[in-house]
């Protein structure tokens, strides 16, 4: 576990803001642009007050023009600036698919190593709450397929700050996926400077009977499920992958070799997903260690519904995770 040297508790959104502010203070190449980030103080108040400190030249309100401003930021990154692009929602990044998938992650390769793209795209990913299918995208599986980009999904305030600082300093494009549902959660964040290395998974709960692997918001349900299952005598180890590219498969393998059972919880759709990729790798590397096939919990394979009961039925939750763990460990 991470060690907070001072017991300072702040919100997830404050941690994101601190990461950006600290990096902007030390590096003038860093600037932020996006919809409603400056004068409006951010649609989700992540960037509240930053305009006052950094001014309109480094804190830029854009029109609703994701393709245009994403491409513009990539052009700026090719010259060595380090833009942070805020998508109000990753759902809106789909209209910027060409720049963010065709330009940013491929520039270094296509230019034979001449032009990199040190850029961070960040914003809310996943279902917010009855936003229906166009506004509830979990883009991790869709985008993680593309080589050349890195992808981080923070679960708590500590990771939000540490991973975002690493993302801003990275010389490659980083897709940083936050969850609206986590922005108000609070956690210990030390005053002191720290960063979190990409590709280092975190064991959020130790256990002996089943490994549960997840990223971001669903970890909340994984930990809830682990608590519930503990009452039944099933001991779960919860692994927070933290980054999808790079993926710390080693930590996951080590855990599964210990527990001999594995459930992957991925809030995106099941087909050709981060969950299916991890399950495939676990099957490959832990073939002789597994007592059962890897079980997976995803959102259902349908567009995200609006109705509250349907949306709840559609999303991963602790009940579904408990069922999967019971099945994976033959405790049905």
């Amino acid at each position: 576990m991470t060690v907070a040297t001072k017991e300072r508790v702040i919100e997830f959104r404050d941690a994101l803001r601190e990461a950006m502010s600290e990096e902007m203070r030390v590096d003038k190449r860093v600037f932020l642009l996006g919809e409603e980030v400056a004068q409006y103080n951010g649609a989700y108040k992540v960037s509240k007050g930053m305009l006052d400190e950094f001014g309109p030249r480094r804190f830029i309100d854009t029109p609703i023009s994701e393709s245009g401003f994403s491409g513009m930021a990539i052009g700026a990154a090719m010259r060595g600036l380090r833009p942070i692009v805020e998508f109000m929602s990753w759902s809106f990044s789909l209209v910027a698919a060409d720049p963010i998938l065709n330009n940013a992650p491929k520039m270094l390769y296509m230019s034979g190593g001449q032009f990199g793209c040190p850029i961070v795209f960040r914003g809310n990913d996943g279902a917010g709450g009855q936003l229906a299918s166009t506004h509830s995208w979990c883009v991790e599986s869709l985008y993680a397929n593309v080589p050349g980009l890195k992808m981080a999904i923070p679960y708590d305030a500590y990771d939000a700050k540490g991973l975002l600082k690493t993302a801003i300093r990275d010389d490659n494009p980083v897709f940083f996926l936050e969850s609206e549902r986590l922005l108000s959660t609070k956690g210990h964040v030390p005053e002191e400077e720290y960063t979190i290395e990409f590709g280092k998974a975190l064991i959020r709960r130790e256990g002996t009977d089943c490994t549960i692997i997840s990223f971001g918001r669903p970890l909340h349900f994984c930990l809830e499920a682990a608590e519930e299952l503990a009452k039944e005598g099933i001991s779960c180890e919860v692994v927070d992958g933290r980054t999808i590219r790079p993926l710390d498969i080693e930590t996951m393998i080590t855990s599964v070799k210990k527990t001999n059972a594995c459930v992957v919880v991925d809030q995106s759709w099941p087909f050709a997903s981060v969950g299916s990729e991890i399950a495939s790798q676990i099957h490959r590397y832990c073939f002789d260690d597994l007592d059962n096939h890897v079980h997976r919990v995803h959102s259902d394979d349908v567009p995200t519904p609006y109705a509250y009961n349907l949306e709840q039925a559609y999303l991963p939750n602790s009940h579904k995770i408990c069922e999967a763990v019971r099945s994976a460990t033959y405790n049905i």
Binding site: K28, F31, R57, R58, S67, G68, F69, S70, G71, M72, A73, I74, G75, A76, A77, M78, R79, G80, L81, D98, P99, N102, N103, M107, M110, S111, F115
Partner: peptide
């Protein structure tokens, strides 16, 4: 800064390159 294969894709990039030169000089 490259030829670019997708028709029109280079136009936001061009805007960004020019944004950057101005930012470098002024900010």
């Amino acid at each position: 800064y490259g030829g670019h294969g997708i028709v029109g894709a280079q136009t936001p990039l061009g805007t960004g390159l020019a944004f950057a030169t101005k930012y470098e000089d002024e900010v």
